[in-house]
């Protein structure tokens, strides 16, 4: 029996849960600027190449964006010559088994992004961890989103969407 299952599960904060749902809905709706506004001024969006990867700074990642790069990533979607988004992707995200995460003010969920683009259907499946910080006005901002794909160490084709 693993320690994880034996430990008393901390309660999931419904406010954080609804933000995870909202985050994924904004991405599906391609409301990327609104999505970016959910993130803190110091934040990270991270898709590691290794299961249980310890650091984004000593091992390569599929994606590791700090706030500055995340803004650049979002801006690129509005450029007419983003070739890898011609035709654009259609996406649906599934958030399930949502529960309290490993650190205070965090959530963990099973996460799937289904993408359809250029006659091809792809799936990105794994576990997503969201960490939050208080925004000073009674709400929360995402300080870190980490998506560990079950095939993180596989050979992958280009990923042009935000996961």
């Amino acid at each position: 029996m693993s320690a994880v299952l034996e430990a008393p599960a901390p309660a999931l904060d419904p406010a954080l849960a609804s933000l995870v749902i909202q985050e994924s809905a904004l991405l599906d709706a391609w409301k990327l600027e609104e999505w970016l506004a959910m993130y803190a001024p110091v934040c990270a969006y991270w898709v590691p190449t290794e299961w249980d990867q310890a650091s984004p700074h000593d091992t390569v990642s599929h994606i590791y964006d700090d706030r500055r790069l995340l803004e650049t990533r979002v801006r690129r979607f509005r450029h007419a010559m983003f070739h890898a988004q011609k035709p654009p992707s259609r996406t649906v995200r599934l958030v399930t088994n949502l529960r309290a995460g490993p650190v205070p003010n965090s959530t963990l969920c099973s996460y799937e992004v289904a993408e359809f683009r250029n006659n091809r259907h792809r799936r990105y499946v794994g576990r997503a961890t969201h960490e939050f910080e208080a925004d000073g006005a009674g709400g929360w901002l995402i300080s870190r989103k980490r998506f560990d794909m079950i095939d993180c160490d596989a050979v992958l084709d280009g990923i042009s969407i935000i996961l």
Binding site: V42, C43, D66, R68
Partner: peptide, 8 residues
Amino acid sequence: VHSDGAGE
């Protein structure tokens, strides 16, 4: 805007 060096 904040960068931890990676974005820079």
